[in-house]
Each structure stands twice: as C-alpha cells, then as structure tokens.
C-alpha cells in the first residue's frame, strides 16, 4: 500500500514535471508566435512613426530598417503650427461619434428584429442591406454631391455625419445581425417564463450577452468612419470643415510631398482611434456561459 503510494507519488511528480516542461515550451513557443506576428503587423506602422521623427526629406532616400541616424521633431512642430489640426480632429470626432450614435441603435433594433421574428419581407430586408454596399463609391460621387447640395448640406458637420451613416449602417446591421444570431433564444425564453415581456427580456438578457458583439460593431464602424475619406471629400470644400483624412492630402503639393509631416499627422490621427480601441477592447470579453442559463 505504502509502496504503491510512493510509486504513485513519484510518477505523479515526474508526470507533473513533464507537463510543466511541456507547458513551458508551449508557453515559450506561444510567446515567440505572438511577438513575431505582432512585429510583422506593426512594422509598416513603426516605419511610419520613425519617418515622422526624421528631418524633412530624409526618409525618402534613407529608408532605415530600425532606427534613423538623424532625429527631429520639426514635422510635429510644423503640423501644429501650419495646419488647423485640432479643428480637423474635432470634426473627425464629431462626425465619427455622431454617425456611430445614429447608426448603432438603429442597427441594434433592426438586427434584433431580424433575428427574433420571422416575418414577411425579412429576407428582402437583409438582402437590401447587402445591396446598399455594393455600388463602387466613384459612381456615387456626383449623385451624393448634387443631392446634398439641394438640401444645403454641403460644408456642414451634419451633412458629413448623415453621409457617413450610408456606409456605417449596412455594415453595422450586417455584423450585428450575424452576432445576435449566435445567441441562443433559450436565454430570452427563460427570462420570459420568469415574467419578463419581450422587450425586457431583450434588454436584461440579450443585450448583456451581446455586449462583445455590440462593442465590436461600435469599434468597427468607428474605425471605418475615422479613416473614411471619399464622402468627406465630396461634401466639404471649406478647409475648416475637413476631417483628418482629407487634411492629409494637404501635404501633397504640386512639386513636393511633405512626407514627414504627413506621417506625423497620421500618427496623431491614429492615436485617438487606438486609445478608444484600447479602452473598448475589454468589453470584448465574453459574458456568455452555460452556467448563466442554469442559474
């Protein structure tokens, strides 16, 4: 009995050590994987950041791999001094948040309706959502300009915000619909058995469960809006109304491109978007567990 126990303990220890070793190797392998893939993805952006810290005209002939041998912050100084960068950022934030605020509730209602009800015209609606996104943008430039001009929406924040909903809404419905579909009906039904009505069940049960999907969708349309260029270009001719993606073009002159300044501006422009993502990403944590259904 005792021999058996000792043997078992020894074997157990050996087994544990082996498992630990395997786990360590696996952990190290995973670490290498994470680091290399992150480097591969981030490198082009890193290069841009690096270029933004070099003296004017430097990065075009000396494309250093890792570090430049000359360093300068003049690009950052001059973009703040020479361009209404803060106005552009403010406009970008206004139209992107505005668009997200209009689109998200509408998309949430629509995708809930599409998922929880079977009704005539349902597939037609889904199909139309897809249709909305299919026409190449260059064909929409002239119609959108003429229509928005008729409604005096050129050079207004409202105009650009409305225009942004045109690409945000179909995307948001499409993504959210797919997500809510994966949440089992049973949760809501259980809540309804407990005395909730349909809407209450939706708000109390499905919404929290759908949080990762809603957060992802919000981030999704926010990032798409943040860098959207074409509609903003069509609808604004006043520099003061530009969004940042339009402002970037102002560094392209007839004979020169102020590439360092352009890189500096896009570093500045990417920053708020990334901060929003860094904060929002914790909502991507899953709230769903089978225990929830039982309890």
């Amino acid at each position: 009995m005792s021999a058996f126990a000792a043997h078992s303990l020894e074997a157990d220890l050996a087994l544990k050590a082996q498992a630990r070793r395997r786990k360590m190797i696996a952990g190290f392998g995973f670490f290498v994987l994470v680091v290399t893939s992150t480097i591969a993805v981030v490198y082009p952006f890193y290069w841009m950041v690096m270029a933004s810290f070099t003296p004017e005209g430097y990065s075009l002939t000396n494309a250093p791999l890792l570090l430049p041998d000359r360093f300068s912050v003049e690009a950052y100084q001059s973009v703040f001094a020479e361009r209404p960068l803060m106005t552009w950022l403010g406009n970008t934030i206004a139209v992107t948040l505005g668009g997200t605020a209009i689109v998200l509730p509408a998309a949430l209602l629509a995708s809930y309706g599409l998922n929880r009800f079977r009704f005539r015209g349902r597939m037609v609606f889904i199909f139309l959502v897809l249709l909305c996104q299919l026409l190449p943008a260059s064909a929409l430039i002239v119609p959108i300009f003429l229509i928005f001009r008729d409604y005096k929406l050129i050079d207004t924040t409202l105009g650009v915000t409305i225009a942004f909903t045109t690409f945000m809404l179909p995307m948001a419905i499409w993504v959210l619909w797919g997500y809510i579909q994966t949440i089992p009906h049973e949760f809501e039904e259980a809540a309804m058995v407990d005395g909730c009505n349909g809407l209450q069940a939706f708000i109390r049960v499905t919404l929290p469960l759908a949080m990762p999907g809603i957060a992802a969708t919000a981030l999704f349309i926010f990032l798409e809006g943040w860098n959207h260029y074409l509609l903003a270009f069509v609808l604004t001719s006043d520099t003061q109304q530009w969004v940042i993606s339009l402002g970037l073009y102002s560094f392209i002159g007839q004979y020169v491109i102020e590439i360092e300044q352009m890189m500096a501006t896009s570093v500045i422009a990417a920053f708020p978007a990334l901060v929003v993502f860094a904060i929002m990403q914790r909502y991507l944590r899953g709230g769903l567990s089978l225990g929830g259904l039982k309890g």
């Binding site: 430039i141 003429l146 073009y249 002159g253 007839q254």
Partner: peptide
C-alpha cells in the same frame, strides 16, 4: 491640393 482640386471643380461645374 492639386490632385483633388480638379474633382472638386468638376463637381461644381456638373452642378
């Protein structure tokens, strides 16, 4: 900027 100026002018002409 020069690359966009023409598209903007053309839109205004079209309108």
């Amino acid at each position: 900027p020069i690359d966009q100026l023409w598209n903007q002018i053309n839109l205004q002409v079209a309108a």
